[in-house]
Amino acid sequence: MKLITAIIQPDKLDEVREALIRAEITRITVSRCSGHGRRQDEELYRGQVHIPNLQNKVRLDIAVNDAFVDVTIDTILAAARHGAGQIGDGKIFITHLEECIRIRTGERGGGAI
């Protein structure tokens, strides 16, 4: 089992979510988060441009069985890219997932995902 964590731009959330559903990855957790990478975003305050210290991002956490890792990654890559070659489309992190437990039944392992 792997935990796939994707940090993407907020405007791509709908596209990524819909693409994942089409790829039959339907169990996801989404949160709004902020951070900084290389991308710089501008906002305005009374006529002055300022660069927020932290950029708004969306974080997806998807726990998958090993067979679904590649399809999940490919789907996110295809849907989250803006395609203009600009920086800031985000990152995907993959970590080994020790255990997964469904609270309702107490069942453990790949079947609980």
Binding site: P10, D11, K12, D14, E15, R32, C33, S34, E42, E43, L44, Y45, V49, N56
Partner: peptide, 16 residues
């Protein structure tokens, strides 16, 4: 998709 607040006005209405 980015939203009017950011794309047209360079602002955001709320925090997180």
């Amino acid at each position: 998709m980015a939203g009017m607040d950011h794309a047209l006005h360079g602002e955001s209405g709320y925090g997180l």
